[in-house]
Amino acid sequence: MTSGLNLLLSAPLSARLGMLMVLLVLLAAIFAPVIAPYGETQIAGDVWLSGSAQHLLGTDNLGRDLFTRLLFGARNTIAIAFLITALSFLMGTLLGFLAATVSGWTDQLLSRIIDILMAFPTLIFALMILSVVGTSIPALVVVIALLDSTRVFRLSRAVAMDIEVMEFVEAARLRGEGLWWLMRHEILPNAMPPLVAEFGLRFCFVFLFIAALSFLGLGIQPPTADWGSMVRENAGAITFGIYTPLWPATAIAFLTVGVNLVVDWFLHLASGLED
C-alpha cells in the first residue's frame, strides 16, 4: 500500500496532471445530481445564451443549461464506455488466454475468425449493425464490446504467448495443473501491466467511438445528455461564431488526454520494470 503511494508520488508532472484530470471528471460524474444547478432535460432559459451567473457555460440549442448537461453527460458517457470496455476485456482476455494456453486448432480457429473481424473497419461495421438492430443503449454496448474485444483478444493472446513459452508455465503443466490455474495464476499476474495499460487505451478508444457515433446521430439518443450528441445538437452554432459545441468537445478531449497521460507513464514504468 505504501509502495503504491510512493509510486504515485514519484510520478512525473504529466502523469500527476493526467490523474488530476481524470479524478476531476470522475468526481463530476459521480456527484452530477448534487452539483448540477438544473435538471438533465429541464429547459432553463433562451436558446444559445452565453455564459452568465445563472448559466455558467450558457445554454444549448433548446435552452437547457449547458453546464448541467455536461455533468450528466459525463455520467452517462463514462458509465457506458466503462461498461463496454470491461465487457470487451472480459471476453477478449478470456478467449485470448484460452487460445494461447490450449493452442492447436482452437487457437487457429479463434485467430482466423478474429483476423476476419479485425479486417473490417470498426466504424463502418458498427454503423451497419446499428442500422439493422437499431440504436438502443444495450445494442450499442453489445455491438461495440464485441467489436472491441477483437483487439483485446489479439493483445492478450500475444502477451499470453510470450508468457506461455516460459518454463514456469511448463513446470505448472508438468505438475498436472488445469487450464484455469494456468490462466489465472501463471499467466494473468504476469500479463497485468500490458493489460492495464491497454485498458486505459481501449477505454479512450471506446469513449471516442461512442462520442463519434453519437455525433453522427447513431449513438446515445436524445434527450439523454451525452457529450457526443451535445456537439451534434449544437454544431450549427459554430458558423454564427457561438462556441457552445466546443464545450462538450473539449470535455471529451480533456478526459482522453488525462487518461492517455496516465497510461503513457504506466507504459514507461512497465517497460522499465522489465529490464
Binding site: E167, F168, E170, H185, P189, N190
Partner: peptide
C-alpha cells in the same frame, strides 16, 4: 524437472 534458466523457470509474480 529443473530447467536451464532459473529466471524464467520461476513465476516472477509468485
Amino acid at each position: 524437472m529443473i530447467y536451464q534458466m532459473p529466471d524464467t523457470a520461476l513465476n516472477p509474480r509468485q
